[in-house]
Amino acid sequence: MSAPHRPSWRLFPGRVAALCVVELQKIRHDRTELYTRAIQPALWLLIFGETFSRIQAIPTGQVPYLDYLAPGILAQSALFIAIFYGIQIIWERDAGVLVTPTPRTALVTGKAFAAGVRALAQAVAILVLSILLGVTLTLNPLRWLGVVVIVMLGTAFFACLSMTIAGLAMSRDRLMGIGQAITMPLFFGSNALYPVALMPDWLRVVSHVNPLSYEVDALRHLLIGIPGNLPLDFAVLVLATAAGIITASSVLGRLVR
């Protein structure tokens, strides 16, 4: 007698978890990428953060600028990991290993949150460096749990954006070009480096529709206690991630034809 068929929704969490475990195994076997990717955020904190803290060029109230900057650099690091994650999809297509019985939604969700796992691994290095530089971070374990959730959601959204671009661009070179073209506008069009109040009106509009701003806002609230709207930040990131998964899943078929 054949085994009873399990509904696909029951298999979904297991498939997503399996892809995250695969990503963890990749990190454990080869940490080189983590080390090299940590160089850029370290330079932002050491050079940009320290310099602007000394000259007090960006007013951040009673919060030291380096404290204000650290959550933004953490979000930036996750963005830089996620925005090129679609290259992996194209590589798997070219290698002939992308064809899988796993439903597209589960595949996209698994890869999106696997990118979040990679971002968390790098976040540890950034937060350790922040502490060494004197940044005062929360000791509340519930807030640290919130940081994990926010980083996972933010990274998952941008990974889905990358996979969507991969499905449209169809080649690694095009994806690299598009990714490089949108990464810095996303970063500078957020509140990662400076308060929204200092932005010109048109940039404020960009910041308000940029999911990275909501990720940074939540991280600042959780890590250093700056007042924020955590329910709004969380809701925006959840909705953005859900929309990203749906969109990426719908274009993934172009890569597996």
Rank of each mutant, 00 (worst) to 15 (best):
I150H: 01
I150G: 08
I150K: 03
I150A: 07
V151F: 00
M152P: 04
M152T: 10
M152R: 03
L153F: 04
L153W: 04
L153D: 03
G154P: 01
G154E: 00
G154F: 02
T155R: 01
T155N: 07
T155P: 02
A156P: 03
A156L: 04
A156S: 14
A156N: 08
F157I: 06
F157L: 12
F158T: 06
F158E: 07
F158N: 01
F158R: 03
A159M: 05
A159Q: 05
A159W: 01
C160Q: 06
L161I: 12
S162W: 00
S162K: 00
S162A: 08
T164S: 09
T164G: 09
T164I: 04
I165R: 01
I165Q: 01
A166I: 07
G167W: 10
L168G: 12
L168W: 15
L168Y: 13
L168F: 15
L168R: 12
A169L: 14
A169D: 12
A169C: 13
S171E: 10
S171T: 10
S171D: 14
R172P: 06
D173W: 05
D173R: 10
D173V: 13
D173C: 06
R174N: 14
R174Q: 13
R174G: 15
R174P: 11
R174E: 14
R174A: 15
R174L: 15
L175R: 07
M176W: 12
M176T: 13
M176I: 12
G177N: 10
G177W: 09
I178T: 08
I178R: 08
I178S: 01
G179T: 02
G179V: 00
G179D: 04
G179K: 02
Q180W: 09
A181N: 08
I182Q: 10
I182P: 00
M184D: 03
M184A: 13
M184Q: 07
M184R: 09
M184F: 11
P185L: 11
P185I: 09
P185R: 13
P185N: 06
P185C: 12
L186C: 09
L186M: 15
F187Q: 08
F187V: 14
F187G: 09
F188R: 08
F188C: 09
F188T: 11
G189D: 04
G189E: 00
G189L: 01
S190E: 06
S190I: 05
S190M: 03
S190T: 08
N191K: 06
N191T: 14
N191E: 14
N191L: 11
N191P: 06
N191W: 10
N191H: 11
A192S: 15
A192N: 02
L193K: 00
Y194M: 14
Y194S: 12
Y194E: 14
Y194G: 03
Y194D: 12
P195Q: 08
V196R: 07
V196C: 06
V196E: 15
V196S: 13
A197K: 08
A197D: 15
L198G: 05
L198I: 12
M199Y: 11
M199V: 13
M199I: 09
M199E: 15
M199T: 04
M199W: 05
P200I: 10
P200Q: 07
P200C: 07
D201H: 13
D201Q: 11
D201R: 12
W202V: 02
W202M: 00
L203H: 11
L203W: 11
L203S: 07
L203E: 04
